[in-house]
Structure formats: structure tokens, C-alpha cells
Write a protein that binds this DNA or RNA. Structure first.
Lengths: 254, 254
DNA sequence: GAACACACAATTGTCGACACTTTCCTTGAC
DNA sequence: GTCAAGGAAAGTGTCGACAATTGTGTGTTC
């Protein structure tokens, strides 16, 4: 749910802070966008301590910006569900509780099963063929076992299915959901215990789309996601544990 | 998808511009929030011309605020899908095309059917009883035929069902969707041609929840919403037409 | 020693000013 | 008359400063 028409890529690198030479225009017209990318990264990669208040001044300084664009970015992230805002007290990164994570996955399941059912009814043969081709090619690239690539391919596959529903709103909703669970998925894939089933199920999804078998497709997808939920919950528990261990360790040092 | 913990009510009135007496604190700590409510109102009630750029300075002046909180509000509205933002060109209120409206309704259908299915499985008997009680009471209030009240009750009813799924994320998603189609629903209810079926279907939904009949519940809900879609599309077409007529009339006058 | 009040520090909220972009209008060439 | 170039005008993007609020530590009272 972005409502933005930016060209900015998700993983755009933060460009050099302008402290040194001050060449180039003083306003880059995308400070807010850079701030957004940077902070989002901090959140998605779990680099912020949960429950800790985010200090705007500090954050702005570390990004070499003023508070205005930082605040704008924080606001956006809050309305996308990454941060929680309380008036007069600022922004906090609330780490997803296990239960919240499960809920987000459940929402994902609802949106995806709904959209695949539509896709079975409405998608053009060409569209489905394109998905099949995409998945064929993706299979090759899965073999390299690069977690980032796999994550990207996996998300892209699911988004493409949603897109076959012909409903852009559904696609947007799914993308927004994906962003929120990405950090867990990333770890999940890194650990790498679950590839085989994932892969075959994707193939099955393509098959049932070709057959336009909505019942089978939704059933596979529901299982597919609920399997992932359980795994993701474990992963998150582990990540939170590590975080708290690291946290208490650093506390005891000081 | 708010990520906000504000107390602000939706229809909070804009308080007097502080030009005159300047008593009370110069910062109310909720300028942004007031701006948000005010602008949202303009959008939801269709008081902004579609496609026309929103002038921040002008808007800020008319609200008696500076640009900063206005901008913050605009940003929020953009990420909620009400406005479209383009860098260096600002915010635009894009009226939903008929097709977009249909898509949002479709998303709503997906989310609601998904959540009612969950509710059938998981809701507590007490929760369902409460919904039934709510609907009983609501029926009384429907008789007064106050459009605003009916809209509120209708939304509340559907949100309550979603809440019975026990999934707060689903509820948030639904609320965000509701906000985006509220303006059409408002007109729809004002015209008042559709009440009877709506009411009986709500009763049927309660019944099938009590019977925990997920299949029936989802089927009723799907029909319920798709019926509304068609009606809403007509309403929007009419509203857009009026808008353009009014527009060209005022143009020809000047 | 605990509870409260008070001042002071840290942090958020808003503002006005200025830098930069886009837009629109004028001017001039063809 | 059409089009392009140039330059004001309008509007957005960012900044630094100050106002208001919240958090914290100190002293006072019981």
C-alpha cells in the first residue's frame, strides 16, 4: 500500500554523506526516500533493538540528514506497520511477537489463496504460461543457493500469482505483507532446511493453475504457507533469543 | 494499518484557528493529527477535485497550520492509498476509477471471506453471542435510517466478524480497506435502495456463525459483497458524473 | 527511608526561511 | 502562427531554531 511513484529500488545503497566535499546540489530531492530505505533496512534486518525508542536527532545525524526527512520516513514506516508511533513519545520498533508473526502469515494466506482462486478463473493462458516459464528459469537459479536470490525469487513467484488475479490492489496488499515478514523469511532461507518441499509445491501450483483447478490450488497454497508459518515461528523465536542473549551480554559487559 | 496509538476520533472537529486570541499552548501536539483528520475528511467526502494537485501552502493556511504537520498528514494518507505522491510534484487526490473500486471491493471480499472462515473455526461461543447481541441492537437503530449511523453500524458489524477470527492483522487490513471505500458506501446508503437484503443477509451471517458453517458463511458473504460491488460501481459512476458536470459548469461560468 | 515537588535535561512538535524544481508565461526566431 | 529558449513565479524539499512535552535527578518533607 504505497501510493508512491518512486523509482527507488528497495536495496538502494545510501550514498556518501555529504560532509566532505559538498559538491552536487545541497538538496537531493530524495533525502526522505534515502532515509526511508535506510531505516527500513535497519528494521527489516533486525538491527534495531525492539522496544527501544528511536531517537530522531541521533538517527538523522547518523544518516547525515536533518530531522525532517527522517521524520517523514518514520511516519511512512509507521503507517506500513513497521514501527509504532505514540504522540509526544516518538517511534518505537516493536519486534513482532511470535503471535503477531503468525497473524501476518495468516493474513498472507488469506490474501494469497483468495487471489489464486481468482487467478484460476481469470488469468489468461498467456499469463499462466509466462508464470510457468518464470518458474522454470527460477528453478535453475535456485541451485546456486544464494539466500537473497532465493528469497527474491520466492516472493516474485507468489506476487506473480497474485498478479494473475488481475487485481492490482491484491498485489499491493501482498507486497506490503511480504515486506513485513521478509526478515524472518531471510533467516529461514539462510538456514536452508526447507527447500525441497517448497520447490515441488511451487511446481504443483503452476500445474493446478494450468489445469485451472481452483480447489487444488488453494489447498496447496494454504498448506504451503501454513508449513512456512511453523518454521518461521521457530526461526523468529531463535532470532529473538539471540537478540536477548546478545543484549544481556553487552549489558553485563558495561 | 495504522501503527498509531492516538486517541483521536475520526470526526474530530477542527478547532478554531489560533489567529485571534492565541490563548492555549502554541503547540497542541496534535496539529498533524488534526490535519490528518481534516484532509482525510476532504478526501473521503470527495471534496477535492480528482487529478488536481494539492497545494501544501494553501492547505496549511486554510487549516491554520504550517506545512510541516500538513505534510506529515499527507504522507500518511498517501501510504494509506488515499493520495498519490510524486517526488517534487506533491500529492494528488486520484479519484478511484470504477475498476479500482471494484478491485478494492474484491480485496475486501477476499479478506472478509477468509476471516469469517477462520471465525467459524475459532471464535468463542461468547464472542459469537456478543456479535448476535450487537446485531440485534443494531437492527433497532437501523430503523432511524440515519445514513451515517447505518454506515457505522454496517462497518462495525463486518469488522466485528473479522475480529472473531482472533487475528488483529486481518482487522487492521479490513479497516484500512473500509476507509478507502467509505465515501462510496456513504452515498450508497444515502440513496437507500438496498437496505432490506443487506439486513437479512447480516442476520444469515450471524446464524451461520452460530452453526459454525464456514461454507455457508463464506458463500453468503461473497454474494453480499459482490452485490454491493455492482451497486457501488453505479454510485461512483454517478458521483463522478456529477463531479464533472459541476466542474464543467463552474468552468463555463468563469 | 519513602513520597512528593521542583528544576533541568533530553526529546518531540511546529514553525519560518531558504534551496532547489517544476511550471507557466514571455520573448524572439523561424 | 508555431515553436523553442529563457526567465520569472509557484511550489516542493530540507534545514535550523525554538516551543512544548516528557523523562530524570535532586532536594525537601514527613
Amino acid at each position: 500500500m504505497r501510493g508512491r511513484e518512486e523509482a527507488g529500488r528497495d536495496d538502494a545503497e545510501i550514498r556518501g554523506c555529504r560532509g566532505e566535499a559538498a559538491r552536487g546540489p545541497r538538496r537531493s530531492a530524495d533525502s526522505a526516500s534515502r532515509a526511508y530505505q535506510a531505516i527500513r533496512r535497519l528494521v527489516v534486518e533486525f538491527r534495531l533493538k525492539p522496544e527501544e525508542r528511536i531517537n530522531e536527532v541521533q538517527l538523522a545525524q547518523s544518516l547525515g540528514l536533518s530531522r525532517t526527512p527522517v521524520r517523514e520516513a518514520l511516519n511512512r514506516l509507521a503507517s506500513e506497520g513497521f514501527l509504532v508511533f505514540t504522540p509526544n513519545r516518538g517511534f518505537v520498533f516493536k519486534a513482532l511477537e511470535i503471535e503477531d508473526l503468525v497473524r501476518v502469515f495468516e493474513l498472507r494466506s488469506i490474501v494469497e489463496t483468495g487471489s489464486i482462486a481468482l487467478a484460476c478463473k481469470r488469468a489468461s493462458d498467456a499469463g499462466i504460461a509466462e508464470l510457468a516459464a518464470f518458474w522454470d528459469e527460477a528453478l535453475e537459479r535456485y541451485r546456486r543457493e544464494d539466500p537473497d536470490e532465493i528469497l527474491e525469487l520466492d516472493e516474485a513467484f507468489h506476487v506473480r500469482i497474485a498478479a494473475l488475479s488481475g487485481n492490482a490492489e491484491v498485489v499491493k496488499a501482498l507486497q506490503s505483507i511480504n515486506a513485513r515478514i521478509r526478515f524472518v523469511r531471510r533467516i529461514q532461507i539462510e538456514r536452508g532446511a526447507w527447500h525441497p518441499r517448497l520447490v515441488t509445491e511451487h511446481t504443483e501450483l503452476v500445474e493446478s493453475l494450468i489445469a485451472r483447478d481452483a480447489v487444488r490450488a488453494t489447498e496447496i497454497l494454504r498448506r504451503h504457507i501454513s508449513m512456512t508459518i511453523e518454521d518461521a515461528a521457530l526461526v523468529l523465536k531463535e532470532a529473538l533469543f539471540k537478540l536477548y542473549v546478545a543484549d544481556s551480554a553487552s549489558v553485563s559487559q558495561s
